[in-house]
């Protein structure tokens, strides 16, 4: 893999800013619902990385502390190095943060209004559908063989049925994988 830092043109930075800046304002529930779109743009449209790269970057973001938009930071890094990481992060956070700041100021006036409840209640099921789509897309990219499919299944079961901190079994699966159990 060739190091990307510092050699990309301004076009890549502009593309990153446009992509994540646009997604920022529709990121209801954060980046998890946007995974299919981010993958499509990064892999199919701009060809910044392969499908396997994307799955790996998502996995790294999950294993690190912090909010779920960090996958966009990594995509920016992969596409255009440090500048790309910073541009993607700023674009992903900027618009939604400005909107939130503005709404927070006006919020108390609309505290209990019916339209707000209707907007929230209406967006929720669509967002949940997107999160399912994100999970589907990632599982499809990650599960290249039955062993990996078994890991996904076990991970889902642990997350669903226990209150353990997921970082332990994420790192566990990584450690087992380092021995070549899942291929390389």
């Amino acid at each position: 893999m060739v190091e990307a830092a510092g050699v990309k043109s301004g076009d890549t930075l502009l593309a990153l800013a446009a992509q994540f800046g646009g997604l920022s304002l529709i990121a209801f529930g954060g980046a998890n619902a946007l995974i299919p779109e981010i993958r499509h743009q990064s892999v199919d449209v701009h060809r910044w990385m392969t499908d396997q790269d994307f799955a790996a970057l998502y996995a790294i973001a999950q294993a690190c502390p912090g909010p779920n938009f960090l996958v966009s930071t990594l995509v920016g890094w992969k596409a255009a190095g440090l500048a790309g990481a910073l541009v993607a992060t700023a674009a992903m956070c900027g618009p939604s943060c400005l909107l939130t700041f503005w709404v927070a100021k006006a919020w108390d006036r609309y505290r209990e209004t019916e339209w707000r409840a209707a907007v929230g209640g209406g967006l929720a099921p669509v967002t949940v559908g997107f999160v399912f789509a994100s999970a589907f897309v990632l599982v499809r990219a990650a599960d290249a063989n039955w062993r990996l499919a078994a890991v996904s299944l076990l991970s889902a079961a642990l997350a669903y049925f226990t209150k353990l901190n997921p970082v332990w079994w994420l790192l566990g699966a990584g450690a087992i994988g380092a021995f070549g159990v899942f291929g390389r």
């Binding site: 529930g29 998890n32 995974i35 799955a55 790996a56 998502y58 996995a59 790294i60 999950q62 294993a63 967002t127 949940v128 999160v131 399912f132 994100s134 999970a135 990632l138 599982v139 990219a141 990650a142 599960d143 290249a144 990996l148 499919a149 890991v151 996904s152 299944l153 076990l154 991970s155 889902a156 079961a157 642990l158 997350a159 669903y160 997921p166 079994w169 994420l170 790192l171 566990g172 699966a173 990584g174 450690a175 087992i176 994988g177 380092a178 021995f179 070549g180 159990v181 899942f182 291929g183 390389r184």
Partner: peptide
């Protein structure tokens, strides 16, 4: 190779985790 292998395992676990999150939110 060890890093690639580790990321395969990590990726599979992370995608399963998101599937559980989807069910939980739904």
């Amino acid at each position: 190779p060890q890093v690639r292998g580790a990321l395969l395992g990590l990726g599979a676990a992370a995608s399963g985790l998101l599937a559980a999150t989807a069910v939980r939110t739904a």
